[in-house]
Design a protein around this nucleic acid. Sequence first.
DNA 1: TCAAAAGTGTTGATACTACACCCATGG
DNA 2: CCATGGGTGTAGTATCAACACTTTTGA
Lengths: 236, 236
Amino acid sequence: MSRFADFPNPTLAVDIVALSVADTRLHCLLLRRDDAALVGGDWAFPGAVVHHGKPVEEAVARAAQIKAGLGALHLEQLATYGDPARDPRGHVVSVAWMAIAPHALLLDKVTANPDLCLAPVIVDWPGETGGPAQALGADGQPLRLAFDHAAILGDAVKRLRGKIDYSPIGFGFVPPRFTLRAVQEVHEAILGRPLTKPAFRRKLLDRHPLHPTGTLETGGAFRPAELYERDPAQEM
Amino acid sequence: MSRFADFPNPTLAVDIVALSVADTRLHCLLLRRDDAALVGGDWAFPGAVVHHGKPVEEAVARAAQIKAGLGALHLEQLATYGDPARDPRGHVVSVAWMAIAPHALLLDKVTANPDLCLAPVIVDWPGETGGPAQALGADGQPLRLAFDHAAILGDAVKRLRGKIDYSPIGFGFVPPRFTLRAVQEVHEAILGRPLTKPAFRRKLLDRHPLHPTGTLETGGAFRPAELYERDPAQEM
DNA sequence: TCAAAAGTGTTGATACTACACCCATGG
DNA sequence: CCATGGGTGTAGTATCAACACTTTTGA
């Protein structure tokens, strides 16, 4: 390490793109910035600096748990963003991570912390083209995101769209017991288009080992749907 | 940046996984290490340290061009590896990049630099399971790779296998004018299994805008194949 | 004219979509 | 018994893999 100390080093950080689905729409967790004028936006993803000698995952845990209050959830590395101009305060290279959680879990943290918000996510581009994404405020207007976080958000959506079909990642958005309709809403929110119910049900049931629990949804009007759960041996 | 200078920082570096296909087998470019005892292996991917204020891509260019002599080729970020123990000399977080090139291009660099080699790549795991990969020496025995480079190599192959079907990335392994058979060999090398010719031809021609050039392959015995080229407007 | 590889046509199986339909429940 | 969403059956279509076949060249 003596050899490396000679080089002037960029700072290394992580940013957490925490996502959930509600009302057939993707939402992301954002943290209010005091220094909006300095960092070029009012809102940003929760982040943390990587410390020397500690795993990158330690910074991820710090950003996700302490700053945003998240517990155990699905975490996946997205990409690393290294433009020297991305942070006006200095050269900060950031490893972006995507966190997937049921909406209620993120909502709890938002109500507990007034500096957090859960903003609906909008993408302009169709399919898997790629590009930046927007987060909407309570008034329906796009929020000003700091740094390159609009681009990171777009990359997160692109990653999700690319793997939602074949991977079990969609189950990260629903509680351990869920209706098939809830999973369908997750897929519709991510893909940004409606799906046909019978086709979706069948694909889901033969692609993933799901068990009907026998218990039914409660609280809804009309016929209650059956609750399913994933095979506990399966991982993301 | 004054705020960030307080934190002790890991060193940030890049590693280049340069890949090509020959003899229906994937090959990777490796650099001989003088310090094999220190870094835990005789061979490693070419790398470079990221300098403060310079884009990460600048380090990629340095690692790819100066150390390995590569020119313009397809580059794609793989992932970032941050285990504090991955480099015995100190905490070095590395952003791994995949470089795709025609085999002849890498072979030229290897013959020009005796510290480089182009090693066949072997994976134990089937399909898209994932896991570490091995690079073979001239004697057919696995080479000792430094750091976590066996895991990085495995991740590179996994990425390739995941996107070779729908993405045009396979064309990065062949020259601008190529036979369809050459592209098929690339796909077979990446997937690790034989493909049927008619199905492959049709899928390739449907999915990508390819133009027959009218000129034929030369130098082969038997019937020469037609040379195709990609639509110049298309990008990776 | 023969061997080997280029390139094409056809068929059978599979997967997916779309539509129609039945079921169960609260009011 | 009616409106509404849960859940299933069926048929048409597009996709894909395997096989057989024809074509073209060098020796």
